[in-house]
């Protein structure tokens, strides 16, 4: 009897595992099978965006000019050929050797980081409000999907009859969602230009959003361990530019009825198309 029971237990465990793998495994499999479409994002570039980019470019072109004129006056003083004796004589470059200047001319550099700044980010961030956002998001995820789920099921049942159509529709809808996120994030992203091999600095960031499209918590940078130390500072800069873009663009406007699909997003920032070549 005991043997029998033991056998039964093992068999049950085995089957349950199989069932679990079945449940968990299939969505993962599906994800692999449906490659992310590439061409569709083009649809979402509106005239608005183009205008904004042009305006930004125009602004960028116009801006430097006043700065330059502001810098111009010193040129007059520079004209004086006898500037050399008084104004920080060149040998001061190695000030330690110059007697008339105290031996400590070479500026001492001491990191003051965090010494005085007593960072109080949590208080300024207002954790209370943050908690409320998190709570809300949970409540709303619980509440929201219930109703659409039924709709979805109905729709799915219908679609099962023509499975081809169904997969096409699903693909298109994620693609649209993707394009919406893309359009909103790209607007805010200033990739670091000019770094050595900048095109190879690909950054993956995960963000968590509330139903209002706000960030639930700071964006998380994924898998940065494979970068060599020489590229570390470049990678950090690239990662920071990505995180800044994500913060600048929040809150995001995305369809609420599909919150379950975008509550968590992995963004891959890849500058190779812009900077390569």
């Amino acid at each position: 009897m005991d043997d029998l029971r033991l056998g039964f237990i093992f068999s049950a465990v085995f089957h349950v595992t199989l069932v679990a793998v079945g449940i968990v495994g299939i969505p993962a499999l599906k994800r692999d099978l449906a490659p992310l479409p590439e061409a569709i994002p083009v649809e979402l570039v509106t005239v608005d965006d183009i205008n904004r980019i042009r305006a930004a470019a125009r602004r960028a072109k116009l801006q430097p000019k006043p700065q330059r004129t502001a810098e111009a006056p010193p040129a007059a003083t520079r004209q004086a050929p006898d500037a050399a004796p008084d104004a920080v004589p060149l040998p001061d470059a190695k000030p330690a050797k110059k007697p008339q200047i105290k031996p400590r001319t070479k500026p001492k550099i001491m990191p003051t980081a965090a010494l005085r700044s007593k960072p109080k980010p949590p208080s300024s961030l207002d954790t209370g409000r943050l908690a409320a956002l998190i709570d809300k998001s949970i409540r709303e995820t619980e509440a929201a999907p219930r109703a659409p789920e039924k709709d979805n099921r109905k729709r799915l049942e219908e679609a099962v009859r023509s499975s081809q159509l169904a997969s096409l529709g699903a693909r298109r809808s994620t693609a649209t969602l993707e394009a919406m996120v893309q359009a909103q994030v790209e607007r805010c992203w200033n990739p670091p230009a000019g770094a050595k091999d900048a095109q190879d600095l690909i950054v993956k960031i995960r963000i968590w959003l509330t139903l209002e499209g706000k960030l639930v918590r700071p964006p998380q940078i994924l898998g940065q361990s494979f970068f060599s130390s020489a590229q570390d500072s470049f990678y950090r800069v690239a990662a920071e530019s990505a995180a800044r873009a994500v913060r600048r663009c929040a809150p995001y406007t995305l369809p609420r009825d599909r919150y379950d699909q975008w509550s968590e997003i992995d963004l891959k920032f890849d500058p190779s198309q812009m900077l390569g070549g």
């Binding site: 968990v24 992310l36 994030v185 230009a193 920032f269 890849d270």
Partner: peptide, 18 residues
């Protein structure tokens, strides 16, 4: 299920060089 649900993946390939 929650961890296995597909996280939306988005490629950001265009930005503003400014």
């Amino acid at each position: 299920a929650p961890t296995a649900h597909a996280v939306l993946e988005v490629d950001i390939t265009r930005g503003n060089i400014e």
